[in-house]
């Protein structure tokens, strides 16, 4: 494994981890407005449909 591959993995790992964890930290410490909760409540059905179509069309 070259340094190029290792560095790529480490950097990609960091941005991916931040994308996963920062929302948890923010939501835990903030009061989420009602409209945002309603908006987010559609994430599961919307994102699952989108992932399904994406995989179907590729």
């Amino acid at each position: 494994m070259t340094l190029y591959v290792l560095l790529t993995i480490l950097w990609c790992g960091l941005v991916t981890w931040l994308s996963r964890v920062v929302p948890f930290v923010l939501i835990k410490n903030l009061t989420v407005p009602k409209w945002l909760i309603e908006f987010l409540s559609f994430v599961p059905v919307a994102i699952m449909t989108a992932i399904f179509i994406e995989n179907l069309l590729v």
């Binding site: 950097w11 941005v15 996963r20 929302p23 939501i27 994102i47």
Partner: peptide, 28 residues
């Protein structure tokens, strides 16, 4: 270039921001 790979990874995984925000409410 590593920067391009990292940017692509971020864009692809940016949907995780949405999923995390959506599920985080249940663990407040």
């Amino acid at each position: 270039p590593i920067s391009a790979i990292v940017l692509s990874t971020f864009l692809i995984n940016s949907r995780m921001i949405l999923m995390s925000m959506s599920i985080a409410q249940y663990f407040k």
